[in-house]
């Protein structure tokens, strides 16, 4: 394979006396979907937030396209081509879908003092991208607060896919989605991966992870339990790792294999 787009080495993150990450190493190659798995509170969201410029790591290095880099803000990361769907979605309920979609990266027309937000183009792109994800917007100027949970999540995903030129990070993007929208998201991941985008996918659903993932890294209590590539690991083994290495087999048996 070629060089990784982003390589994070020994990332530590402390919040006061809480150690959220204790030396995590992770990388993403172009055209790869790297799944980040782990229990609740394992540090997955914290980790991807250091990757997207929200948190500055307490220790550790980030190499972006071979060069050491430190993001001072999410804006820096975005300009580098990293787009993220955060677990809390980062949407403003009082603002319209279009305004949310382009928040921070508005398309403009005109130049100099007449440079202005091109709302018509923005509305058009927004409606089209949402339709690609299987959602027909009633109106692009509808406030995000009036959308259903899954619709809101879809806006966040469509936005990240639209702007994720090099790396697309998805933090549990399918948690509120219906069957059709979920399969849309999974096939979108497959599509952007083919375009050479590196995808980081966080999920608690092994089947979803197995469906699109090329490699799987499992976090547990702020540390990496290991990385496996597709074919070297069975869904059952992955499931056990995700639960913090404990045996789930017995529990699974009693639940009739539905977990």
């Amino acid at each position: 394979m070629t060089n990784p787009i982003i390589h994070m080495e020994g990332i530590k993150k402390h919040f006061g006396n809480v150690i959220a990450l204790n030396g995590v190493t992770f990388d993403v190659f172009p055209g790869e979907c790297h799944c980040l798995l782990g229990d609740n509170g394992a540090g997955k969201s914290t980790f991807i937030k250091t990757m997207s410029g929200v948190h500055k790591p307490t220790a550790g290095t980030i190499n972006f396209e071979g060069k050491p880099l430190s993001f001072n803000s999410p804006r820096d990361a975005m300009e580098a081509g990293i787009a993220t769907v955060f677990q809390d979605l980062a949407m403003i309920p009082l603002m319209s879908v279009t305004r949310n979609f382009f928040m921070g990266r508005e398309p403009t027309k005109g130049r100099g003092i007449l440079k202005r937000f091109d709302i018509d183009a923005a509305n058009e792109i927004c409606v089209e991208k949402m339709r690609d994800m299987g959602i027909n917007l009633r109106a692009p100027d509808q406030a995000v607060g009036t959308l259903s949970g899954g619709e809101r999540q879809t806006v966040a995903i469509a936005r990240a896919v639209h702007f994720g030129a090099k790396v697309l990070i998805l933090d549990e993007p399918t948690s509120a989605l219906g069957v059709r929208q979920t399969s849309n998201v999974l096939s979108t991941i497959a599509r952007v991966r083919e375009q050479g985008v590196g995808v980081v996918f966080i999920s608690h659903n092994v089947r979803h992870a197995m469906a699109v993932g090329d490699r799987f890294t499992v976090l547990n209590r702020g540390q990496t339990l290991g990385t496996a590539s597709k074919g070297n690991i069975t869904p059952a083994e992955l499931q056990d790792l995700m639960a913090g290495g404990q045996e789930l087999a017995t529990l699974e048996g009693s639940l009739g294999g539905t977990v």
Partner: peptide, 10 residues
């Protein structure tokens, strides 16, 4: 509207 969400969105 939400300075945290705005900040995270760039």
């Amino acid at each position: 509207g939400d300075s945290n969400a705005a900040q995270n969105s760039g």
